[in-house]
């Protein structure tokens, strides 16, 4: 494949003088170098632009509400001046992500153990590919399915059963309180869990595969059972990578919009029951931004800024952890 390039170069030197060709090379080289360098700087500028826009856009709300924004539950944009507090969406964002990870992490790790240790060889590739393909399904599909299928199914069958089961247990009867509805914090969390599940599985499988076979064989050699190998060899060896992967999934869950917007109910309230409707930052922006203006819009951008700062730190921590693992694996 170098032939063509050389022919080009030879043809050029034949028509033009050697010096001119060299000059052309030098110019082309410098141009290409600077094009790539500017493109790399552009990536930084995109992030800088996002942060700058969010801060400028959020400034009016930031100066009007200050720290009270974080502790005010009331969201009344129709008032004049509007009374806007971010507590409910912030609470909803953190709670849905936490519940989603509570469900998705054990299941995802279980699937990853299944894929690396238990699954018959011939099934490994198909299931692995299926998991990766499912990680690519757009989030609006999950949201739509949750809205039409999962939400009504849960609200009419399982959730009332849970509510009546815990009705007499203190604390739990507050967390699992009725009335159930098609749109609730729990439904949104479950959809989020289903959505990040393939993601956690794929990362956990990849980090489990970095465990050197010698370590596992040694553990089996001294008589460990498969579960003991998983618990005492594979998980400790890959701990940093697993936590990194989980935080990456957390970053996804915190910022997820379309899977949540349809099923959370868009209610700006902080309620103890997870079967009550709520809202998240991204859902609030998605459903209200288009009709907002002035201070109202600024408050939504402030919510976006908070979300961005939150995910930035979670993702940065995740990347640093995964980098550490990669460095140790020597890749």
């Amino acid at each position: 494949m170098t032939d063509m390039a050389i022919e080009d170069a030879v043809a050029q030197t034949m028509v033009a003088s050697r010096a001119r060709a060299l000059n052309a090379f030098k110019f082309g080289d410098a141009t290409f170098y600077w094009m790539t360098r500017i493109a790399a700087i552009c990536v930084l500028l995109i992030l800088g632009g996002i942060i700058a826009y969010l801060i400028v856009g959020a400034w009016p709300a930031l100066t009007t509400y200050g720290l009270n924004f974080l502790s005010t539950q009331r969201w009344a944009p129709e008032l004049d001046p509007p009374v806007l507090g971010g507590l409910a969406p912030i609470y909803g964002t953190l709670l849905t992500s936490a519940i989603a990870l509570l469900i998705a992490v054990p299941v995802g790790l279980g699937v990853a153990v299944f894929l690396t240790e238990l699954c018959p060889q011939w099934l490994r590739r198909p299931i692995g590919i299926a998991v990766e393909l499912l990680a690519g399904i757009p989030s609006i599909i999950y949201g739509m399915w949750g809205f039409f299928v999962l939400g009504p199914a849960l609200a009419n069958t399982i959730e009332p059963a849970i509510v009546s089961f815990f009705a007499r247990v203190p604390v739990l009867n507050v967390i699992f309180a009725g009335p159930t509805s098609n749109q609730s914090i729990f439904n949104a969390s479950l959809i989020l869990a289903i959505m990040v599940l393939p993601f956690i599985t794929a990362i956990a499988r990849d980090v489990f595969l970095t465990v050197p076979p010698v370590l596992k064989e040694a553990a089996y050699g001294v008589g460990c059972t498969t579960w003991e190998v998983v618990r005492s060899v594979m998980v400790p060896y890959t701990r940093v990578g697993l936590i990194g992967g989980i935080m990456l999934a957390l970053g996804r869950a915190l910022g997820e919009t379309m899977a949540v917007t349809f099923v959370i109910g868009n209610a700006f309230r902080v309620q103890a029951s997870i079967f009550a409707p709520g809202t998240t930052i991204s859902a609030a922006i998605a459903s209200e931004f288009a009709e907002s203006a002035d201070l109202y819009q600024s408050a939504l951008i402030l919510l976006g800024l908070l979300l961005f700062v939150l995910t930035f730190f979670v993702l940065a921590a995740a990347r640093l952890m995964l980098m550490q693992l990669r460095r140790r694996a020597g890749g």
């Binding site: 990536v43 996002i50 969010l54 976006g304 961005f308 995910t311 993702l315 940065a316 990347r319």
Partner: peptide, 28 residues
């Protein structure tokens, strides 16, 4: 240095919430 900073920032952009990108382009 530029490459390692860009690599890090790029990895963060890779999973940045897409609604925030919508907000940014709305303003820009």
């Amino acid at each position: 240095k530029l490459a390692s900073v860009t690599r890090f920032i790029n990895d963060i952009l890779l999973s940045a919430p897409s609604i925030i990108i919508g907000l940014f382009i709305y303003g820009a």
